[in-house]
């Protein structure tokens, strides 16, 4: 492959996997690297090969961006805080005798399945080494978790006659998490 083809191929490879602004920044850095080798006396093809080698494999660079991505950070934080908020809601269910609440079985099953799906998406986000799939998984997880929190707060505030005391912890915790997920989605989807 010619030098210019090598540079273009590299740029296309990162542009296909990373946000446009990141791809632009990398393209500028790669061009600078290439020109620095030209200035050192290398021919165009050799300079392109040296620049691409110095920059690192596109997969390595994409994986490094994925590790540092807002999606990965948000997923880690939600996985870390999840058990605490989950414990608060568990206490609400137990002390409020959740089995007596006027919530249909289908809704109960749906709540459990959706929560499991959110946890699976968060776990996938911290393991995926590709940027865009991690971004999609984190966005879906954040949206799902916000919906779950909203539903939990609504059920507690509207349907339950005698709100159990652990709700004083669980409702603000969920409200904070809704605010966090809204901010996280904006950050994850930033171009």
């Amino acid at each position: 492959m010619s030098g210019s083809g090598l540079i273009e191929g590299y740029r296309a490879a990162v542009a296909a996997q990373l946000p446009a602004s990141v791809a632009d920044e990398l393209a500028d850095g790669l061009a600078e690297t290439y020109h620095s080798y030209l200035e050192k006396g290398l021919g165009a093809d050799a300079a392109a090969r040296a620049a691409v080698a110095e920059f690192g494999e596109p997969a390595v660079v994409v994986a490094a961006f994925t590790r540092a991505s807002p999606a990965r950070r948000a997923a880690r934080r939600l996985l870390l805080t999840g058990p605490l908020i989950g414990a608060c809601w568990g206490a609400v269910l137990v002390t409020g005798h959740a089995w007596t609440w006027p919530v249909p079985l289908v809704a109960r099953v749906l709540a459990g399945v959706s929560l499991a799906a959110v946890i699976a998406l968060l776990a996938a986000t911290v393991r995926i080494s590709h940027y865009r799939p991690a971004r999609r998984a984190a966005t879906a997880a954040c949206a799902g978790l916000a919906a779950w929190d909203l539903a939990a707060v609504a059920v507690t505030m509207v349907l339950i006659r005698h709100t159990p005391w652990p709700a004083l912890l669980a409702v603000p915790a969920s409200a904070s998490r809704i605010a966090f997920t809204a901010r996280a989605i904006r950050s994850v989807l930033a171009p």
């Binding site: 990141v22 920044e25 990398l26 500028d28 850095g29 600078e32 690297t33 620095s36 110095e54 920059f55 690192g56 494999e57 596109p58 390595v60 660079v61 490094a64 961006f65 590790r67 540092a68």
Partner: peptide
Amino acid sequence: GYAVMEALREATGGRLDLPTGTIYP
């Protein structure tokens, strides 16, 4: 980004062996 990498190389006498692309993240 590239100038940051160059500054690091200069400061360390070229002993840093990092893929330049990983500086950006």
